[in-house]
C-alpha cells in the first residue's frame, strides 16, 4: 500500500510554475531521501503534501487522505521544518501542552521520553533558545503523536554532533524499523545513506529520477579509459562526463543500464570501472534534470 502518491501535480506561484507535473509514489515503510538543488520546488511540494497549499492540478493522496484544507493530513503526519520556529513567549512544556490539545493521538509520555532522550528540559524558555534546542523540540513535536508518515526537512540542521548521531542512528533508524514512511531532505544526504531505501531526485518541479539505494550502491561507478578516436567521444544518455586529458576520459555512471551501454559502445580501449562513493553519487544526481544532464 502506498503511504504517499501524487500524480501530475502542478502549482504556480508568482507566475512561476514551481511544481510542474510532479508524479510519484512511496510504499508504506519506505525511507526516502529527496535530493534537489535550492529552488527546485521541495518547499512548495512539502506544503502541498501537508495540505497548506492547494495544487493547481493533479492528484495527491497522503495516507489515504486527499488534501481538503481541513488539517486531517497534518494530524496524521509528522513534520520537521528546516528552521523550526515556535512562539518565543512559550516554554518547551507549553509548546508541548498546546500540541497535546490539538493532536488527537498525542502521547504525553512519549513526548516526555523523547525530551529526556534528546536532553531537552521542558522548563526551557524559547526566547533566545539555541538552534539545537529548537531542533530537538521540533523532533519531539513531530514524533509524539506517532504519525505514520514523517516529512523531514533538514532534520539535523543545527544539531550538535552527538545529538545528530542520536537522531540519525537512533530516531530515523527506529522510524524505518517501525514501518513508518519517511521522506527526508538533507544537504548532507551521505550521512543518511545507511538509513535510506530510495533516493528521489527533484528538479524543475518534478521527480526526475528514483533510485533504490541498494542499486545505487551496487551500480554507481566511474568508468574511465582511452578513446579509440578523438573525433567521436561516446554520447551515452545518463553517463556524466567527468573530464580528462587528451584521449583519456572518465564518466560517472549511476545505473547498470547506462554502465552497460557505455562499456558496450566500443569507444573506449581497456576501460576501467571503479565504484563511485555515495556522496559523490548524490552530487552527480543533482546534476540531472529530467533524467538528462543539465
Amino acid at each position: 500500500m502506498n503511504a504517499l502518491s501524487f500524480h501530475d501535480v502542478t502549482r504556480t506561484l508568482g507566475g512561476r510554475r514551481v511544481l510542474d507535473g510532479a508524479s510519484g509514489a512511496a510504499e508504506q515503510g519506505t525511507v526516502i531521501g529527496l535530493l534537489g538543488r535550492n529552488g527546485e520546488g521541495q518547499t512548495t511540494w512539502f506544503k502541498v503534501l501537508r495540505d497548506l497549499l492547494a495544487a493547481d492540478s493533479g492528484t495527491v493522496e497522503v495516507l489515504g487522505l486527499r488534501p481538503d484544507g481541513s488539517g486531517r493530513i497534518r494530524q496524521a503526519t509528522g513534520y520537521i521544518p528546516e528552521r523550526p520556529t515556535f512562539h518565543s513567549f512559550m516554554s518547551v512544556a507549553e509548546v508541548l501542552a498546546l500540541r497535546a490539545s490539538l493532536f488527537h493521538k498525542w502521547d504525553s509520555s512519549r513526548a516526555a521520553a523523547l525530551c529526556e532522550r534528546l536532553g531537552l528540559d521542558p522548563a526551557t524558555r524559547l526566547e533566545g533558545a539555541s538552534k539545537g534546542t529548537l531542533g530537538k523540540l521540533a523532533w519531539v513535536c513531530a514524533a509524539a503523536h506517532d504519525p505514520a508518515l514523517f516529512l523531514l526537512d533538514e532534520p539535523t540542521s543545527g544539531l550538535d554532533a552527538l545529538v545528530r548521531e542520536e537522531v540519525l542512528s537512533g530516531l530515523v533508524n527506529e522510524l524505518g524499523e517501525a514501518g513508518k514512511t519517511v521522506l527526508v531532505t538533507s544537504h548532507r544526504m551521505d550521512e543518511l545513506a545507511g538509513l535510506l531505501d530510495e533516493v528521489w531526485v527533484m528538479a524543475g518541479g518534478r521527480i526526475v529520477a528514483v533510485h533504490a539505494l541498494d542499486g545505487l550502491r551496487a551500480d554507481a561507478c566511474v568508468i574511465g579509459g582511452r578513446l579509440r578516436s578523438a573525433d567521436a567521444p561516446p554520447a551515452v544518455p545518463g553517463a556524466i562526463p567527468l573530464g580528462g586529458e587528451g584521449l583519456v576520459r572518465s564518466w560517472a555512471v549511476l545505473d547498470r543500464a547506462t554502465r552497460e551501454r557505455l562499456l558496450g559502445c566500443g569507444a573506449l580501449e581497456s576501460p576501467s570501472v571503479e565504484p563511485l562513493p555515495l556522496d559523490r553519487a548524490f552530487s552527480h544526481l543533482l546534476c540531472l534534470k529530467g533524467g538528462e544532464l543539465r
Partner: peptide, 16 residues
C-alpha cells in the same frame, strides 16, 4: 511570517 511558521505545523486549518 513568524506566527504562520509556528502555527502552520498545527492540525487546525488556516481558516480555523
Amino acid at each position: 511570517r513568524d506566527a504562520n511558521e509556528c502555527e502552520a505545523l498545527l492540525p487546525p486549518s488556516p481558516g480555523r
